[in-house]
């Protein structure tokens, strides 16, 4: 198991956002994490990456308990995290955004080469010198993705990466993820069910802070409880 989460919980004052979640993620898998708005998906991956401190539970990454490690040390162990609410360095160039991510483990010419490759992979190669804040929203999402993949993580956590992308860009995104899956394990939060069904090896469904179901796309598609949660939530389209 690359990642193993046990009894992870988060309380925000009165609100119990994540309730004792268990999750096992084997190496090489694409795992989709879905659920209605406010289900606790972002909070859960926040606790995995260390951005949010857990109220209870533990996180095992690559066989080691990292629950007490600060975020930067978890990232340094091979996690990469992309933000749901785009959080690029708006006043720095696109290349410098990716460069900052690359230079944690690469230097000089190697770093520059990795940056160029990552930008080409997400299709932003021509915009390297633009200021990141000037990019369209969808392109900022792609920049987030480039900042993730340039780190060559063992676990890549993506929080709604296709938000704001056009149909064509979503196609390109899917083939990129399939490509990446050969070198890294991916935990993907996604509202677009067509993308989820096309990419995920397995799906974990979160509802009101609990794991509602887990299984292959077919199993999840056929699961009555999941259908009910989604019909109640109403924001995700089935494809």
């Amino acid at each position: 198991m690359l990642l193993s989460v046990k009894g992870l919980s988060k309380r925000f004052d009165g609100l119990h956002a994540v309730k004792s979640v268990d999750l096992d993620l084997p190496e090489g898998e694409i795992r989709a994490l879905i659920g209605p708005n406010g289900a606790g998906k972002t909070t859960l991956v926040g606790m995995i990456s260390g951005r949010i401190t857990a109220s209870a539970g533990s996180v095992i990454f690559d066989g080691e308990d990292i629950t007490r490690l600060p975020a930067h040390r978890r990232i340094a162990r091979g996690m990469a995290y992309t933000f749901q609410i785009t959080s690029v360095f708006a006043r720095l160039s696109v290349a410098e955004n990716v460069g900052l991510a690359a230079r944690r483990h690469l230097h000089g010419a190697k770093a520059r080469k990795a940056v160029a490759e990552a930008l080409d992979r997400v299709g932003l190669g021509a915009r390297a010198e633009q200021e990141a804040g000037d990019l369209a929203y969808g392109h900022q999402r792609l920049l987030e993705l480039a900042m993730g993949i340039v780190q060559h993580p063992r676990l890549l956590i993506l929080d709604e990466p296709t938000q704001g992308l056009s149909e064509g860009e979503i196609e390109a995104f899917q083939s990129l993820i399939r490509n990446l899956a050969q070198e890294t394990t991916i935990l993907l939060i996604e509202h677009n069910m067509r993308v989820v069904m096309a990419l995920a090896d397995r799906i974990t469904v979160l509802d009101a802070g609990r794991v509602l179901a887990e299984g292959t796309p077919e199993e999840i598609h056929a699961n009555a409880a999941v259908q009910a949660a989604y019909l109640g939530g109403g924001d995700a389209q089935t494809g």
Partner: peptide, 21 residues
């Protein structure tokens, strides 16, 4: 120094890139 500039711009993002801010 470029990490310092990035901290000025968005410290949390720098932390989540794996730097000890």
């Amino acid at each position: 120094g470029r990490v310092l500039v990035a901290i000025r711009e968005n410290e949390e993002r720098v932390r989540m890139l794996g730097y000890d801010t």
